[in-house]
Write a protein that binds this DNA or RNA. Structure first.
Lengths: 364, 364
DNA sequence: CTGAAAGCGCTTACAG
DNA sequence: CTGAAAGCGCTTACAG
């Protein structure tokens, strides 16, 4: 059988199955594609139809179903770059969870692509409409100023990852306050008393959550909150955007800032531990401290944030907070599917916080 | 306007546009969706139609087009896990390049998902048929024994990443021989004379390519090929599968083997440089050598393979070979698109080798 | 260029 | 349960 003959071969249709099973097209369609009860059909007919479908390798025509208004079993996924360390595993798990309920994922990552025009976001939103996606996952970074309201207008069935400032929207996010508390508690248990916090900024809600967790956990252990122990990158020119420019696949990490963190927290404020902004900060802090003769973890313990697999490969390996991407993806898929089948979620079910986990390695 | 009214609002159709533009449905369809020449229409009509379409926010109905046999502008992407460090950037770039030619990417990564049944591969292949993808990118790891012949049978338009043992199939792969030569040449230029090679196995073609490159480049510099300087992990129980089990998101890295590499190459054979199997080997080798008091790069230089971003975060940062994922993705998209539009590629255009690049950091 | 018709494969509504 | 018909939105073929 040549390739040409394959591609020319007519697809097997409901009519073929019905004829072979000796039933009506209606019944065959009802049994194979109806989804609901098969009450109308005798058990024998159902058997016959299923067998005929299998024999003929029947698969219902996707385009015809769509045209008649059936759902697409496709979710659109908006992400700035699929390879982004903060997103790649979320992407993987979202698709894996979607597959479990019979759905597929259409990706759209375009920030990595300089050739894509400015209005990529709107174009994707329209293309998603055109393709009849059942819903959308929006996992673009919160600081990108795309029009999320317009997205919601076109796709009421949207679930966000991380709070993107859209009131009442369905949203799954990491419990950052809990994350900071986990880190601090662990350090206290290891006997640290002067625990520093190194943050990129303290002017955004998500970052403030971590600061609050840091404060609360210190207080829970009767430790003072010393503002000298809190480093805020913002006055030093650190904006809230990522230092990893995925567009150019280039890391522009402010390594000199890490020395400032060490000056401020370790040298001046005598920190014996640092809760770092993320694993990349942690890795650089460790690297710079080694150069300066400060031993990790003996003199200063370091905790990261994210649990990127690079944590296994630094020296020492980094103790960190795992963001539970799999759990987040599971929650997102479950919420979206419920929205698709049952309509909008009740308001009190729209915000889901994911519990992070402490992963202990060598840096503490 | 309530959400309900939006979802109920009838989609704008070609008929609406034609009426508004005062032309026939045929002409409107021809101008807006025909793609080919607009020779049949007067310039004025074309203007009118375009304007009407824009005013009404017309987008051609995807399902109807598919049903009538138009191409889907969708590529299927088979990958074991989208978050895999060896694949995540390829995934990102494939989508980015596809978008540039107006196509979208349907991902399918399921190895990460224990709940997916054994026959996931065949299911995806059928689902891709059902959804009418224009073609398929197959970037699953070569050692997974899925039925690639069956894939090709259903989807003649398939481009593989890395040689997967399918004769005559279109395939883009890294020039591994060139990669090894780049590493060796760089080390020779840095004055190294006893350059070790640490390989996972030497029984697979792809790995042998690197060994050949190593040999050739040594010979090109008049250096002897000393078999003591070649470490082969295979006799030590290292199979050719990845040590990163994405299914469980768990790394089972044979760290004790890294000590064996150091014993064999550095202690016994007096290597002053190691060309490592990949960046993860390089990172571990560096880590273990530090423990043993061997200075990198002063005593032993190390070169990785892949240019994963973790190379920036180890100490010292790793000199490595970049696999040019963006170029590979570009070639794959270009080949697939040509197959879609012009039919099968001539046999001599089916194998594309991507040139890797040397990235110098601190470990050499 | 127009206009009316057929048909892609399915689902829905309807009379039996 | 069956059977014949309509229609989702489009493209194609055809007579004008």
């Amino acid at each position: 059988m040549t390739k040409a003959s394959i591609s020319k071969k007519k697809a097997v249709t409901l009519k073929d199955v019905a004829e072979r099973a000796g039933v009506s097209r209606w019944l065959a369609g009802h049994v194979l594609n109806g989804g609901k009860s098969t009450a109308h059909a005798s058990l024998e007919s159902v058997e016959q139809i299923r067998k005929a479908a299998k024999d003929l390798n029947y698969h219902s025509n996707y385009a015809a179903g769509l045209l008649r208004g059936k759902r697409s079993h496709t979710f659109g996924l908006l992400v700035s770059s699929a390879g982004d360390p903060l997103r790649s595993f979320l992407v993987q798990y979202l698709d894996a969870k979607a597959v479990q309920i019979g759905c597929h994922t259409l990706i759209s990552n375009t920030f990595s692509n300089p050739a894509v025009p400015q209005n990529w976001f709107e174009d994707y939103v329209e293309e998603f409409v055109r393709r009849g996606v059942d819903g959308v996952f929006c996992a673009i970074h919160p600081h990108y100023e795309e029009d999320r309201a317009a997205l919601l207008e076109r796709h009421p069935n949207t679930v966000f990852y991380e709070d993107q400032g859209v009131p009442d929207a369905a949203c799954v996010s990491v419990d950052r306050e809990a994350a900071a508390r986990l880190a601090v508690r662990h350090l206290v248990e290891r006997g640290r008393r002067r625990i520093g916090l190194a943050m990129m900024t303290l002017s955004l809600p998500a970052h403030l959550d971590r600061f609050r967790g840091y404060e609360l956990e210190l207080q829970a252990h009767g430790l003072p909150v010393d503002e000298q122990l809190v480093f805020n990158g913002e006055p030093h020119g650190l904006a809230a955007y990522p230092y990893c420019d995925m567009k150019a696949n280039k890391w522009e990490f402010p390594i000199e800032l890490m020395d400032m963190v060490i000056d401020t927290l370790v040298c001046d404020a005598q920190a014996d531990a640092i809760v770092a902004y993320d694993d990349f900060w942690a890795a650089s802090l460790i690297k710079r401290m080694r150069v300066r003769g400060i031993k990790v973890p003996q003199q200063v313990a370091v905790v990261g944030y994210l649990n990127h697999y690079l944590c296994d490969w630094t020296d020492p390996a980094i103790t960190t907070i795992d963001l539970s991407h799999e759990a987040a993806a599971g929650a997102m898929v479950q919420m979206l599917e419920q929205m698709v089948t049952d309509g909008p979620l009740p308001k009190d079910q729209r915000k889901v916080k994911i519990k992070p986990k402490l992963i202990v390695r060598e840096s503490t």
